[in-house]
Amino acid sequence: MPEVIFPGPEGRLEGRYHPQRSNDAPIAIVLHPHPQFGGTMNNKVVYNLHYAFHQLGFTVLRFNFRGVGRSQGEYDQGIGELSDAASALDYLQSLNTNAKHCWVAGFSFGAWIGMQLLMRRPEITGFISVSPPANMYDFSFLAPCPSSGLVINGSADRVAPPADTRSLVGKLHEQKGITITHVEMEGAGHFFEDPHMEPMIGTVKDYVARRLTETTR
């Protein structure tokens, strides 16, 4: 899988790019957890999400936010990181101008950034939000949420308590025209440590595969 360096708002951003042979393959970006708490694009959840999308036929990009790894710049409270995500999507789209579908997946802090990107980019047709930290960040910008997606969290999450995630999903359910699928995995923590990683990724793959089938009918 090629390492890539592409331009971001504050300098170079480092990523991993995994293309398909087909030039009209769907595309996805995967966003990592909080940079100040050890989050990188090689986080286990992010890595597994990346490969899940690739196995489903997507061309995939994951990358390090500013100040992480070889990405230039420094942490910017989520504001700059949202700009980084937009630049990453621009880069991915520039290499895949015939892509039929565009998805964003994010884990924890990355889920928050991904949902904000969703609001700004109408071409995003689906999202995966893993362990969204609804207790730490304001998700009220999702009014209305522009596309359907999957929210998945663990019942034993001590970082982002399940009650806050349920409350977030409840607000999204009230909106018309989209379908939010919510899966709370029994016994799983914030990071989906084994034995929960494999079933979590399986749930994501089943959901994305079903959505792709629906759109090609």
Rank of each mutant, 00 (worst) to 15 (best):
D84G: 00
M41A: 10
A25R: 03
E214I: 14
S155R: 06
W112C: 00
M185N: 11
V204I: 07
A111G: 04
I5C: 10
F37L: 15
H101R: 14
L150E: 09
S155M: 05
E81A: 08
Y137D: 08
G187S: 07
D76W: 13
Q72K: 02
P144S: 10
A160R: 08
I128V: 15
Q93M: 10
P195H: 01
A28Q: 02
L89N: 09
A143D: 13
N23W: 09
L142Q: 03
F191D: 13
F127T: 01
P133N: 10
G187M: 08
G8R: 06
L142F: 11
F53R: 01
G170H: 07
R62G: 03
E184P: 12
G67D: 03
F58E: 01
F63V: 08
P122Q: 15
E186G: 02
G39A: 02
R21Y: 14
M1W: 14
N64L: 05
K100P: 00
S22M: 05
T59I: 09
M41P: 06
E186H: 06
A188G: 04
E193N: 15
P132I: 11
Y75W: 15
S131Y: 08
G170E: 03
F109R: 07
I113W: 12
K205W: 10
E214Y: 12
G69L: 02
I79F: 10
A25M: 02
P199F: 09
T203C: 12
D164Q: 02
P122V: 07
